[in-house]
Amino acid sequence: MNGEAEFLAGYDATAYPAVAVTVDVVALTIRDGRLCVLLVERAEHPFAGHRALPGGFVRADEGPDAAARRELAEETGLTPGEGQLERVHLEQLKTYGDPGRDPRLRVFSVAYLAFAPSLPDPSAGGDAAGAYWMPVDEAAALAFDHDVILSDGLERARAKLEYTPLATAFAGDEFTISELRAIYAAVWGEDLHAGNFHRKVLSVPGFVEGTGQTSTRGGERGGPKPKLYRAGDARLLHPALLRPTREDGVR
């Protein structure tokens, strides 16, 4: 018997405290011009009847990334492998593990941030009694430590829009500068000067590129039709598009 086999033969799992791993997903989209987060209504204790971020325990045969995709698919109805779920930007946010965050046992949660345009009406999956999109400024008193997770997710999203072209993940394949500005305004929660924003976007190399086409959406009556753009090849924005409050020196 080698050393590893001897160790396993004498290993007593009961000598260690029980620990579980879950995933929680901060899924954001823009609906009717407002930044919204996907919430579920818990059907079971703990926190039965409370709103929460979608999530669940990581299964024995999957990793956290796969669990996050599964949970997102269950609540949104998007189908993996058919190009629907693949268009959602999904990234790991942070791990949360304060003692007592879950009254059942010691639970570590790997939180994820998801962005996508025009996500469909959700349908409750798993142990949820309901699921719906809610404006982020109305989402409060969530179960567990989900208020903290949501706050961290929102700050990550708002910061990433400053330094990366992630705003285009909220847009369709083609968009106008006005539509892109509406995304920034919704995520940041701030009004943006149209002319300044237009100038800044076009001054960032690789941020957007023109399609050579114009849009029938949002043009002024009698004025020129707005130009259509698509995401460029930039991975970082230089110069960055800072939030107006940050430009004014407010931190």
Rank of each mutant, 00 (worst) to 15 (best):
H146L: 11
D233S: 10
D102E: 07
Y229M: 06
A169R: 04
T245E: 14
L150N: 05
A131M: 07
P239I: 11
E86F: 08
D191T: 12
G81Q: 08
Y96H: 14
A143T: 01
P80N: 11
L242K: 13
G130N: 06
D24A: 11
V40Y: 01
I183Q: 02
K160V: 15
G97A: 12
V136P: 02
L228M: 04
Q84E: 10
G206T: 04
D248C: 14
H89R: 11
L228E: 06
R246Y: 11
D147T: 05
F170K: 08
V250A: 11
A157S: 12
A185T: 00
L28Q: 07
E71R: 02
G77C: 07
G125M: 05
D191S: 15
A157K: 04
L150Y: 01
A186C: 04
P80I: 10
T79K: 12
F47P: 04
S178D: 07
D102M: 03
P103H: 13
E71Y: 11
V26S: 07
T214K: 07
R235Q: 12
E138L: 08
D127L: 12
P120I: 03
G219L: 05
D191V: 15
A13R: 06
T79F: 15
V58R: 00
K160S: 08
D191W: 09
H50L: 08
T245K: 12
V201M: 05
A231C: 05
G195Y: 04
A67K: 00
G130V: 02
D248H: 08
N196K: 15
E75V: 09
A13K: 03
L192T: 08
D98Y: 14
H50A: 08
T76R: 00
A52I: 09
A116W: 02
Q84T: 11
V201Y: 02
D121T: 09
T245M: 12
R243T: 03
T76N: 04
L113A: 09
S151T: 14
R106D: 12
A171Q: 08
Y11H: 14
L72T: 01
W188A: 02
F115Q: 15
E209H: 12
A234Q: 01
S203Y: 03
Y163D: 10
R70S: 06
V187C: 00
K227L: 14
R158K: 12
A131L: 03
I30M: 02
V136C: 09
A43N: 13
E174Y: 15
P224L: 09
A9S: 15
P64K: 04
A13V: 10
G55S: 09
E155I: 13
R51H: 13
L93V: 07
S123V: 13
L228N: 04
D147G: 10
G3F: 06
V107P: 01
T95S: 14
L8M: 15
E86G: 07
E74M: 08
S109L: 09
E71F: 15
R70H: 11
G210W: 00
I30C: 04
E155W: 15
A185N: 03
D137C: 13
V136R: 07
